Amino acid sequence: MNQCTAVALLPPPDHLLALAAPGHRPEAGHVLCELGGDHDGRHAAMLWDEGGRPGSAVWVRWKGSGLAQLTPLPWCSALDPRNEACELFTAHPSPHSWDITDPTHTAVTHHLTCQHPHLFPRSRDGSESGRAPGPDPA
Score class of each variant (00 low, 15 high):
G36W: 05
T71Y: 07
L79Q: 12
G37K: 11
R61P: 00
K63H: 10
R25F: 03
H105I: 12
W59P: 01
E34R: 13
P81V: 12
L88Y: 02
H39L: 05
A57W: 04
W98N: 03
G29A: 13
S56F: 03
T71N: 04
L47E: 02
E87N: 10
G37A: 13
A91C: 10
C33V: 07
E87H: 10
H43K: 00
T90D: 15
G51N: 02
R82K: 14
R61G: 01
L112N: 00
G55L: 08
L79T: 09
T71E: 15
P26E: 07
T101A: 08
H110K: 14
V108T: 08
C76F: 01
E87V: 06
S56T: 09
G64A: 06
S97M: 06
C76T: 05
E34M: 13
S56H: 06
V108L: 15
F89R: 07
T109C: 11
W62I: 08
V31C: 06
D40N: 14
C76G: 02
E34H: 09
A107Q: 11
D80A: 03
G66R: 11
W48H: 13
W62T: 01
H43G: 02
T106K: 15
Q69H: 12
A57K: 02
W98H: 00
T90I: 11
L112F: 01
E27F: 05
S97F: 01
P26V: 05
L73P: 00
E27I: 09
R82P: 03
H30K: 12
S56G: 15
H92Y: 00
H39E: 07
E50I: 09
I100T: 00
H105F: 14
E27A: 13
L67E: 14
E84A: 12
S56W: 04
C114N: 14
H92M: 08
R53E: 11
E84Y: 11
W98S: 03
N83E: 14
P117L: 06
G66K: 09
C33M: 02
H39C: 03
A91D: 15
G36I: 10
L47A: 00
C86L: 07
G64E: 04
P93M: 07
P81C: 02
G64S: 00
D99A: 13
A45F: 06
D49P: 04
K63D: 08
W59D: 00
S94I: 08
Q115H: 10
H105Y: 15
G52L: 11
P93I: 05
G64P: 00
L67H: 10
W59E: 05
V108G: 03
